[in-house]
Amino acid sequence: MKKTIYIYFTLLFMFFANLCTCFAQETEDVSAETARLLRRLEHKMAGVKTISAGFVQEKDLALFKNTLIINGFVYLKKPDLLAWYVTEPLRYKVVIKGDNVEQWDEETDKVQKISIKKNPALQAVFEQMDKWFSGSYLSMTNEYYIKISSRAPVSIRFIPKDGTYAENIISSVTVLFRNDEQYIQTIEIKEKAGDITKLTFINTLLNGTIEDKAWEVRPRVQ
């Protein structure tokens, strides 16, 4: 179990560390319209303090015969709470509370704990996750060409720039927003190797109350 969580977070780092690595320049190589749009989206998403949503994740990966469909729930409470709860095909949960990460799955029924305080790699990973989910896209302009695919609803396409690490793995990332632009509808990642991952949020509740049990890594027996 420990092996697995270790590999998972290390590799997460390797990916996310290269996805969003530069804050310094905000509007490099984006048109004025795109920059305005990104600012508008960031502003709207900045007002979101809590998120509760179901998700359907479709993974079309070379490893699997068929598309892997994952159902679950995601909870986010700013500044430092995130819970990713998979209900199908098996129950699995990871909860991030500040500097601590806990992981559980129904097969082993064991809880793994890691402190990310002394692990800068993990800390970087969760910061990146936070950016994708909280919409800090303006800061990604150094790594990606950002283009508006559609304006209503808003859809933005991120294409890795030459010479970046992401360019080795990813062809594009497309983010589709809800009609009210307050949050993400879907994120689709296309890899160079041909794998595609699509994450769709459903029944999204913004700024609602999240029950305490959402932050318990081991789900309560129903």
């Binding site: 590799l11 699995y92 990871v94 996750m129 994450l199």
Partner: peptide, 10 residues
């Protein structure tokens, strides 16, 4: 199980 995680694809 790793593939079920948010970034399992990579």
């Amino acid at each position: 199980r790793n593939m079920l995680a948010p970034s399992g694809s990579f």
